[in-house]
Structures are given as C-alpha cells and as structure tokens.
C-alpha cells in the first residue's frame, strides 16, 4: 500500500511545491492597518513535514489561510506547484483549492448529511471532470485511515478520532500538493491525538507534504521541521531530529 500511494504522488521529493516571495497581508480595521504577514519569503518542498508555530497574533492563521488559498496576499508572490495564485480570481482560487490543497480542520468539519464515503468524495465533487476512479480512490483512503468498514456511517455516528480520520482521507482524495492541518489534534484526547499524529508520520513516510499548524510545542516537535512565526515574520526555523525518527 505505501509504495502504491507514493507512486501516485505527482511531486518528486525535494522539488518546491509552495513558494512564498515577499508575501504581505494587510488587514484594514477602521483606520488602523494590521500587518499580519510582513514580507514572508519561504519555500516548502515536496515530501517535507513542517509544523508552523507561533503565539496568537503571530500571523499563523493568516499564513494558513493564504497557503490554503482561501485568502490572497496583499502583495508578493505565492506559487503552488508552479502556478502563481496571488492574482487569481475567486473561481480560479476555488479550482486551485480543489486540485492542490488538502484541508484538515481542528473541528473535523465533516458535512453532517453525508456519510463517510460521500464526505471523502466532496473535493472531487467540484472538479469539472471528476476522475473515473474517484470512488475507488475514496474507498482505498477510507481503508488507509482505518475506516473501511464504516463507509455508510454518518459523522454523528463516529467518535472524534474517527471523524478526524475521515477528514484526513477527504484531504488526501485529490492528491494535494500540501496537506494543511490546522490544530488537527486540538479537539482530541491525548491518546487519540497520538494516533492521529502517528497517521501523519506514516503519511510523511509515504512522501506526502504536510504542514501542521499548531500552538502546542509537543505536537510541533513531531514534525521534521518547525517554522516559528512572530509578528508576521519568520522568527526561527528548527530541524527536529526526533520528529523524523518517532
């Protein structure tokens, strides 16, 4: 299974998948300007596993929104798999999200009226031409996250950990350039959180590019590298040996 998954990945290890150049994001609050990101330049490469950390107000959420293409930089350049997204319009941004981004949220955010299989399929639902093997892919991913036997269950019939596994399967179904996890373990008890983190480790070993946004140092250390933000700038980059090994 892992080899097959790895073979499916489009990005060759070490190639840049996300390139940020002089990215600024300025919010206007009344007469005040809030500079949430202040000239950020950074490159995430294929197969890397990063945690993005920082106190609240450090620009962490803003960076996450930009990386996830639900927001646009005020200035600067953001390229994902080589495509410049800073200048795209709303429809094109949606297309980029559907094709290249995998979102995992803190509160799972599954759609209540859909069952597990349908939830996993949602990103492909909005493709202009859904891949012919969409359902097969979704089943395989459900199997991969350990929910192969619960395809017909509705989210409210699953535990938090199970819901988050569905969310991860959903985030992977479009074979994204980056898997963006926003406090993915924040709503889970420590045991379940460890299981989810172990799943991320496995995905990392399969060659996925993972960006984990968190404020918890213990979670942050699980990643290969940590990017620490402060006042909208990069404050520190650390390489965690232990993260790669565990």
């Amino acid at each position: 299974m892992p080899t097959k998954e790895a073979a499916q990945a489009r990005d060759r290890a070490g190639e840049p998948v996300v390139e940020l150049t002089d990215v600024e994001r300025v919010y206007r609050m009344g007469n005040n300007e809030v500079r949430a990101l202040d000239g950020l330049t950074f490159t995430f490469r294929a197969g890397e596993y990063w945690s993005i950390m920082g106190s609240s107000g450090s620009g962490k959420s803003t960076l996450l929104n930009l990386l996830g293409c639900i927001d646009r930089p005020s200035s600067g350049s953001y390229r994902i798999r080589g495509t410049e997204v800073a200048t795209l319009d709303d429809d094109e941004l949606s297309e980029i999200r559907g094709q290249h981004i995998g979102f995992v949220f803190q509160s799972y955010n599954l759609i209540a009226q859909l069952n597990v299989l349908e939830n996993i399929l949602v990103p492909l639902f909005y493709w202009d031409e859904p891949p012919p093997d969409a359902e097969e892919r979704a089943r395989m991913l459900a199997e991969r996250v350990g929910l192969g036997g619960r395809l017909e269950h509705k989210p409210n019939e699953l535990s938090g950990g199970q819901q988050q596994r569905v969310a991860i399967a959903r985030a992977l179904v479009n074979n994204p350039a980056i898997l963006l996890a926003d406090e993915a373990t924040g709503n889970l008890d420590s045991k379940t959180a460890q299981e989810i983190l172990a799943l991320f480790d496995e995905l990392h070993e399969e060659g996925k590019t993972i960006l984990l946004v968190t404020h918890e140092p213990s979670v942050g250390r699980r990643a290969e590298h940590t990017l620490r933000l402060s006042d909208g700038r990069i404050a520190e980059v650390t390489h965690n040996r232990e993260g790669a090994s565990t």
Binding site: G68, I70, D91, S94, R97, G98, Q99, N109, V122, W127
Partner: peptide, 16 residues
C-alpha cells in the same frame, strides 16, 4: 454558514 465555508475550502466555486 459553516458548511458553506467547508465546501468552499474544499474547492466549491460560487456557482456550485
């Protein structure tokens, strides 16, 4: 609203 946000984040366009 939240469902709309999720769908948009997962690639839904306005027309969808």
């Amino acid at each position: 609203t939240r469902e709309i946000g999720i769908r948009r984040a997962l690639g839904a366009k306005r027309k969808h």
